[in-house]
């Protein structure tokens, strides 16, 4: 249980909460700037780059999941976030990651699954 944990946004109502387009984690923009995305910083490289944050995260998401035990949770598994850190995730995120990230994923042989539930498999 002593796994990594994302910053939990203090104000759930805050309008500016953003969700990562790749892993759907929800954080405040300040946390994204300070720490980047706790799951996919390696790819997104948002830390310290507000423009990048704008491009890789969105406020347009629907549904909030508090993932407390990602390993055990079926919800996290269904959302494909069970390998990610604990934290708040969005059920659905609108938008696609920037093309460069998509290309990077492709080069690593990782299939990109948009989180807008437009594709079901």
């Amino acid at each position: 249980m002593s796994q990594a944990q994302a910053a939990i946004p203090p104000q759930p109502r805050a309008k500016q909460l953003r969700a990562c387009l790749l892993c759907s984690i929800i954080q405040t923009p300040a946390d994204f700037r300070k720490h980047g995305c706790p799951n996919c910083e390696e790819l997104m490289q948002m830390k310290g780059y507000p423009d990048r944050i704008q491009a890789c995260t969105t406020t347009h998401f629907d549904g909030v999941i508090g993932v407390i035990d990602p390993e055990q949770s079926w919800v996290a598994r269904w959302q494909r976030t069970s390998k990610y850190v604990r934290g708040m995730y969005a059920v659905r995120v609108k938008g696609r990651i920037p093309e460069d990230v998509e290309a990077e994923l492709e080069s690593r042989g990782i299939k990109y699954r948009p989180r807008d539930q437009s594709e079901q498999d």
């Binding site: 549904g63 999941i65 407390i68 035990d69 949770s73 919800v75 996290a76």
Partner: peptide, 9 residues
């Protein structure tokens, strides 16, 4: 509990 979630709809 393992998780909790909410849907806007």
């Amino acid at each position: 509990i393992l998780s909790a979630f909410q849907r806007d709809s």
